[in-house]
Amino acid sequence: MHPILKLVSQRLALGLLLLLAASALIFVGTQILPGDVAQSILGQSATPEALANLRKDLGLNEPALSRYFSWLGGAIQGDLGTALTNGQDIATSMGKRLGNTLFLAFWAAVVSVPLAIFLGLVAVRYKDRWPDKMISAVTLTSISIPEFLIGYVLMYFVGVKLGWAPSVAMINDSMSLGQKLHAIALPVTVLTLVVLAHMMRMTRAAILNVMQSAYIETAELKGLSSFQVISRHAFPNAIAPIVNVVMLNLAYLVVGVVVVEVVFVYPGMGQYLVDHVAKRDVPVVQACGLVFAAVYILLNMVADIVSILANPRLRHPK
């Protein structure tokens, strides 16, 4: 078998195993919370008889292991159960939310990843000179300020004072793409500012590391310009570490947007999760946890695979 195929299938198998472990952890985590679903549905004043009946109806008297497998089996088939609070199918109501979150994360990534890499290249080109220092200072400042604060500051100045973008990022199906993009302009900006520093600094460090190599000297002695040396010779060898940090940040864009979504009242997964945590809707929390875990594992797996593919020794064995 081609070594690449072997490595990639190993990564896939590991990813699936990890996802299984994550599902077990999520299930156990929600089980060890005090009280159970029946208690939460009926409230503190419920009679013991009513509780016993409901537990029987919900199958809560089954051993935890069999409940885990029936939950997992359902999840694999796309059935995440029904929400306790409103009795709706979780998969259906979450599907739209997830779509919205991915929409927001996608556009944040489209802006932030090329920008971060470009700024990283510029920082390398002007290493230790003012453009490098300024890029570092600005991105570090923006990552140091909590995202809700950036959110409110932008909302006040850009949204309220200047009126350039709506301060509440409501979107729905009837809006055109342009309208949607206009609506999410502010949360995209906040997310970009939050993830930019990390990716830009990693790009800078990875390329600077490669710049020490002898083949960079060879390139310089061919009379290439600094930018040609960096983009043609240094960047291709720095892809693996850059992809890893890019994927970590993409995962953050999906999983970590909770705060930003709440600040901008954006109808995404974050809002959905926060609402149902507040109501102790355990099946929804479990489902959200599973989806977040899957996204996280998937993106990191992609990073691993891209790193493998970026290595010419693996792509073209002797």
Partner: peptide
């Protein structure tokens, strides 16, 4: 001016070709 000279009028062969070739190209 140096860039026009390098790689055109004067070229360089390094000690370790293994390190001086870009592994990704």
């Amino acid at each position: 001016d140096l860039r026009k000279l390098r790689g055109a009028e004067v070229t360089y062969v390094a000690q370790s070709a293994a390190a001086s070739f870009n592994p990704a190209k």
